[in-house]
Structures are given as structure tokens and as C-alpha cells.
Amino acid sequence: MFRRYCAAFASAAALWSAAVAAPADQTLHVGEATRVFHPAVARYWRGAQTQALVTTIWYPADLTNPEVTHDIGAHDRPFFHGHPAAVDAPLSSARAKYPLLVLSHGTGGTADSLDWLASALAAEGYIVAGTNHPGNNAFEPMTLDGFMLWWERATDASEVLDGVLADPMLGPHVDRDRIGAVGFSLGGYTVLELAGARTNLAAFERFCASPQADAICHPPEAARIHEDPGAPALTLATLSPETKASRARAGNSYRDPRIKAVFAIAPALGEAFDSTSFADVSIPVSLLAGEADVTAPVDTNIHRIAGFMPKAKVTMVPGAAHYTFLDTCLPAGFERLATICKDNPGVDRDAIHAQTAQRAIDFFAVTLPAGGT
């Protein structure tokens, strides 16, 4: 889908890709629009500058609506390739109803950081809605509450689902029996919560205080948290009442029964789950990560999660690291964001994107079938 700026594909990855069928000929263009949802639940206590759920929608558009090339970032120096889109085009009239996927980005990212995936799904006939999680996105300072209170993201996703279903253009054309979720990194954790997984916050905090603590306890995005230099040192006693109340409900179920299948890419926070966490997960789950992921180390994240979910489909991608699953970088991105733009030698990010998108398309075709219930 995207182009250039990575090395040649390694032989192991080539073998992996050979097993994946190429996408069918595209019969739909990709439409893109923005919605700003204002749920009744206030988010001011997260400290976020933006309280609304600013949401990008990718959706099928007719071929008569031309796609316009656009990259992601500042207009004069964009950081990432973006898929061409027909901005604010009407929803395609090819079908009466379309399946819907809610999308959740990783820590400190944006919905647009998964444009490669969302646009591929939209071209296959899915409406995809991804919000920028308040207090934890790249468009404004990241806050401590936005960073720490991961389970609140599931409520964001459910409220975006509410908003899309109520949207006068999109809502009447959503097949409400075919709704799923897809997420990356902390967004992978989020969609597992939407499936019914429950967080064990105390277990995660014990792990991170132990000699076994690994990179998941110190994500690089934490350096971007905006803190008041005059604020007292953070302890349980100094947390706000709202933060304490959120922590108290960390282990609640955030299952959204409207969601019938989830696809989690490089899911994080595996140590926040235990053997009881997935007792209420009854929908199909697909887990995918790179074998070379050292940001969400595979043993304590995807493999740990998969160990608790023997029925989950698990795919490991040779050579791929954590940030391989973000948009492909342009030169300005390589200059400013080397950590997330540089892949391991022999890894072709574009090829992995195409293969991963096809994995997601194939998974949802089976788990959200047309005419299904």
C-alpha cells in the first residue's frame, strides 16, 4: 500500500508473505471524514486539552469519487505516507449496509498512525472509526491520567461506537450484527478490554516493581507526559479523587456486547492480565506481533496473553519490531522520529503492512460474515 524507504524484504519474511493471498481487486475508493463526538461523560479530570472524541472515519466510497493523495503531518513537511482518500465523499451506494470496526491507536499516537490499516479495510467495504484518546495522543501534551488509566480507553471506543451509530450519514448504513474492533499496542490492550478482558492492575504494578520488570514498564512515550513542576510528588495519597475512582474500577468489565470480534496488533500490558482475566471473552480474537518486538516484549505480552486464550489465533511476523506497524515514514519522519521509523535490516514495512491488512481482512471476513448473526 505504501512505498519505498525501507530495505529489501528478508527471505524469512518473504516466505511468510507467500502464504498470504494478495488482496482482491479494489472495487471501492476510500472515503475519509472527521467527526467530533461529545459523550455525556466528562474527561476534564484526565487533564487533556481536548475533551471531545476527535475521530477519523475511513469508509467505502464509490469509484466516481476521486481519491486525492495526502500524507500525514504538517502540510509542508509530512512525516508519514497517507493512503489517497476522497475526503468527505458520500458513503458508497454499492451496498445497503457495511460492517463497522472501531480502531484504537497506541500510546501517544493517533488514529492516523494506523491509516495504512484503516484505509485497506475501508477499501474492502468496512467503515473504520478511530478516535484520538484524550490525554494520550500526539496532537497535544500527554497527561499522567491519560497515560496511566488504560481501561478508560475502552469507554472512549464504546462512545465512538455510539456516535457512529447515531451519525445521520453513517449510522443507517451500519450492519449492527457485524461490528468489530482493531487496535495496536495499547490499542491492542484496549480491544481486548472491549472483548471482555479484565485488568489486574496490582499484578502489573508488582511486576514492574520486581527484578523481572522489562521494557513494557518504561515505554519511551512516558517522557512526553506533561506534569506541573509545582505539583507534589506522585503517590497514592496525592492522586485526585477522580484518578482514585478510576483506579478502583480498573478491574471492571469493559466488554461491549456489540463487538463480535477483535484483532490486536502487538498487544501491550500482558502482565496486567492473569489466568482469570479472559473468563468472559467468548468472541473470536486474533493476536499478531513482530518476532523482533522489544518495546512490548513478546514473552510478557503477546505470548503471555495467548497462553491465557488457547482459542485465539496467533501470528508472529518475522523481523518485524513494534513500530513496524505504524505508518511508513517519509524523510522528515526519519529525521525527527528515527526510533519509530527505522526497521531492522531486511524488513520491508510496506510489505508487512500489506500482509497484516490482509490478515485482518481475512479474519473479519470469517468472524463478521455477511448475512451472519
Rank of each mutant, 00 (worst) to 15 (best):
T235H: 13
S253C: 03
K260D: 03
A264H: 01
A296K: 01
L236N: 13
V262W: 00
A223M: 13
Y254W: 01
A237W: 10
V294E: 14
F204K: 13
A233H: 12
P229S: 05
H218T: 15
T300A: 09
C208Y: 11
M309R: 03
G251F: 02
A215Q: 14
C208T: 12
M309Y: 00
K311T: 04
I265F: 09
A306W: 00
R249Y: 01
P267A: 06
I259Q: 06
F263Q: 02
P284I: 05
S286M: 14
V314N: 01
A233F: 06
D293L: 04
P229A: 02
T315V: 15
Y254T: 04
P267V: 08
P232E: 12
K260T: 03
T315N: 10
P297R: 08
D274A: 05
A222Q: 09
T300E: 12
P267R: 10
A222W: 00
A237N: 14
F273V: 05
D299T: 03
S253W: 02
T295V: 14
D214P: 11
S240W: 11
D256N: 09
T243M: 13
P257S: 09
D228E: 10
P219N: 15
E291D: 12
L269P: 00
A266I: 05
T238Q: 12
F308A: 02
A266L: 12
A292E: 08
I283T: 07
A264P: 05
S277E: 02
A264G: 06
P211H: 10
F308W: 00
S240R: 12
P219D: 11
T315C: 00
D228G: 04
A261I: 08
V294A: 14
R206I: 08
R304H: 06
P232F: 03
R258Y: 02
A279W: 00
H226G: 09
F308T: 01
V294S: 15
T243K: 07
D214T: 08
S210Y: 12
A296E: 12
E242K: 04
P211E: 07
A245K: 12
P211W: 06
P211D: 13
F308V: 00
S282F: 07
D274N: 15
A279Y: 05
R224H: 10
E205M: 15
F273I: 04
H303N: 14
T238L: 13
F204N: 08
A215S: 15
C217T: 10
E221I: 11
A223S: 10
L287K: 05
V314F: 02
A289V: 03
A279H: 10
I259E: 03
T300C: 01
S246F: 00
A223N: 10
A292F: 06
V294H: 14
D280A: 10
A261R: 04
K260E: 04
E227Q: 13
T295A: 14
V317I: 13
A296P: 07
K260Q: 12
D228V: 00
A213Q: 15
A213G: 14
T235C: 11
A245D: 11
A292V: 04
E205P: 10
I283L: 12
V298C: 02
K311A: 12
D256T: 05
A289F: 07
D228R: 03
F308G: 01
L239M: 14
G251A: 07
A233Q: 15
